[in-house]
Design a protein around this nucleic acid. Structure first.
Length: 496
RNA sequence: GCUCCGGUGGUGUAGCACGGUCAAGCAUUAGGGACUCUCAAUCCCCCGACUCGGGUCCAAAUCCCGACCGGAGCACCA
């Protein structure tokens, strides 16, 4: 069977086992996301990154999952920038996050910045204080924790509402010192999970905010502002990482006290990214120390870095849709990701020869006047490139190829001619294709030095064809890999 | 330690809500082959999994219990 050509194989299958082919025609097995619960028509969804830095590959999952569902059902996708911790903000992120999302093809309908909504959180807090659901606590952090661990109420828990209100006004007015007071949501002191018992909703913090300077002194913690916004923004479904499961439990108390309807929650499993640098704190330090060139350093796992290397946005989407929304933790597969990416680029990417660690040869008796090389093995639309060849044209090959040969060995310069290695150089060995001999890439009249930077921090340098100057974007360097051109002399390695 | 969640081939998943059509599908990787002036693409073939032990049932990957393993959270980060 294997000795037949593909068409012959097809024919045999067709005549002898028609049911096999029919079966395959049934469905191309497109992966798709499950239906959402209670999605009565339109949905309102959100993604909520903190502006500690640009988005990375991990964020892309949440962005694409949410975007996919809003596209499917219609509705609204909100980008909510969660900047209620002024100590962990990189102002650059405010502008870069929307750019990252746009590049990913995520359609954001509305941007909400939490620090612009402080008065709303204060208002909601006052309401809950008046309802007796939030109290001001002036315990020391350690005492507070210790008590909760034993399910013991702290002395402030039942103090008069007027005291709590007064404390709140003092705190918002900046009359309270950091750590001197916190505002706590009453939940259930007997809740099995100690972290859900009476959790802190606001903290006093004197740290300048990049957007608001010293205007605010009392900041909501994530669980409070998220709950309030999820309701006020009309969220119908929330999709986020499993690390938020416990937060969901806490947030539900705010919904319950206000009589608000809960959104449907989904939590996808955590993804482990081996060998990918994602932590913004590490990246920041590295950039400051000059170890990384910036947020788009190709050694990083940021969206900017993937983009710089030439990945297609479609790859992110397909990868995350394929991964689904299961709650199991998983490992990011670079192999699958790259394979998906290749399927998007292969047919439209022009080929070029690149010889790293080059050896420049003069070929004795070179008998040719010119050569045309196709830019793609099957896609004719990409045309071809032409070189004039003289008897003394110098030719570069990769030493990786050349040094493995013995004098007398013959190889073929792809799409051109055969050469034979001699004791001190090379000689012409005919133009006709000889089956079975190795075929290598080559560069005539080598002039253009090119360096390929690789994501592992290494680089390769050699000669590339001069036609690199005529194009931009992606090339496939034959037998080497895909490279995204940065300039006429350097580029970034994408994948094989 | 406590709380919660989860365990399908090397990797990513489908199936599990309503047990039989699943001696388990797809993709990727590894291997073999066809084709090919790339060690690419394409095509064909092939290796490979329901964590374990009990239970319910005519029938369990699917339901129940236990064990084991893994993950997350554990309070002034998001």
């Amino acid at each position: 069977m294997n000795s037949l050509s593909p068409e012959e194989q097809q024919n045999v299958a067709l005549s002898e086992f028609p049911e096999i082919l029919q079966k395959e025609e049934k469905k191309p097995q497109e992966h798709h996301l499950p239906e959402l619960r209670n999605h009565g028509g339109k949905v309102v969804m959100r993604m909520a990154p903190s502006p500690s830095g640009p988005l990375h590959i991990g964020h892309s999952r949440m962005a694409i999952l949410n975007d996919e569902y809003v596209r499917r059902y219609g509705g609204e996708l909100i980008l909510r920038i969660e900047d209620t911790n002024p100590a962990n903000i990189d102002p650059f992120a405010y502008e870069q996050i929307p750019r990252d999302l746009e590049w990913l093809g995520v359609r954001v309908d509305r941007i909400v910045i939490q620090s612009d909504r402080m008065e709303i959180y204060y208002q909601e807090a006052r309401k809950l204080i008046e309802m007796g659901k939030i109290y001001a606590c002036t315990c020391k952090t350690e005492e507070f924790k210790a008590k909760l661990l034993k399910s013991i109420a702290c002395p402030h828990r039942d103090q008069d509402i007027s005291i709590n209100l007064k404390a709140f006004e003092n705190a918002t007015a900046g009359k309270t010192k950091s750590k001197e007071a916190a505002f706590v949501v009453k939940t259930d002191l007997d809740h099995p999970n100690p972290s859900v018992r009476d959790w802190i909703a606001f903290r006093v913090l004197d740290h300048p905010h990049p957007r608001h300077g010293d205007k605010y002194h009392l900041y909501p913690l994530m669980n409070f502002s998220v709950a309030v916004d999820d309701h006020l923004l009309g969220l119908t479904h929330v999709i986020r990482g499993k690390d938020h499961i416990n937060n969901t439990e806490k947030q539900k108390y705010i919904f319950r006290y206000n009589g608000w309807t809960l959104p449907e929650y989904y939590h996808y499993g955590l993804v482990n990214f081996p060998d990918v640098i994602l932590k913004t704190s590490i990246i920041k330090k590295g950039i400051q120390a000059g170890q990384f060139s910036g947020w788009d350093d190709i050694r990083l796992g940021t969206i900017m870095a993937f983009r710089k290397r030439g990945y297609r946005k479609e790859t992110f989407r397909k990868y995350w849709i394929d991964s689904g929304m299961r709650e199991i933790d998983s490992e990011f597969s670079k192999e699958i990701f790259n394979s998906i990416n290749k399927s998007f680029i292969d047919n439209t990417t022009p080929r070029l020869f690149f010889v790293r660690n080059p050896v420049v040869l003069r070929i004795d008796n070179l008998n040719a006047s010119g050569v045309d090389i196709p830019n793609h093995p099957t896609n004719r639309e990409l045309g071809h490139r032409h070189y004039d060849i003289r008897y003394d044209t110098r030719i570069a090959v990769s030493s990786d190829d050349w040094t493995s040969l013995q004098p007398g060995d013959t190889i073929r310069l792809k799409d051109f001619c055969n050469i034979r290695k001699t004791s001190d150089g090379a000689e012409f060995a005919g133009k006709e294709m000889v089956k079975g001999i190795p075929i290598i890439q080559w560069v005539p009249d080598p002039e253009i030095q090119f360096t390929v930077y690789r994501p592992d921090g290494t680089s390769d340098t050699g000669f590339v064809e001069k036609y690199i100057q005529n194009g931009s974007g992606l090339f496939q360097f034959e037998r080497y890999g895909y490279v995204n051109k940065g300039s006429d002399s350097a580029g970034y390695f994408l994948h094989r």
